[in-house]
């Protein structure tokens, strides 16, 4: 399971910039590439928060 998660997180890092490297369409007034960047800021925070909660639980169970 852990390995699958790691592999999944590589995919956006390698592939997506070539796809999202564009200005159109504008979303919330932002060019697409900047919207994409902003979205990932928030998503990264959410992912990290979830993982920290999971970690805390694992420690409690020990």
């Amino acid at each position: 399971m852990k390995k699958i998660i790691v592999l999944l997180s590589v995919i956006p890092a390698i592939g997506s910039l070539s796809v999202v490297n564009r200005v159109e369409p504008y979303i919330f007034g932002l060019p697409f590439i900047i919207f994409w960047a902003t979205a990932w800021l928030i998503l990264t925070s959410i992912c990290l928060y979830i993982s920290s909660v999971i970690c805390d639980r694992q420690e409690e169970n020990k």
Binding site: A13, I33, I34, T38, T44
Partner: peptide, 9 residues
């Protein structure tokens, strides 16, 4: 900014 998001990933 347009180039920064990978930083966070």
């Amino acid at each position: 900014y347009g180039r920064s998001h990978y930083l966070y990933i």
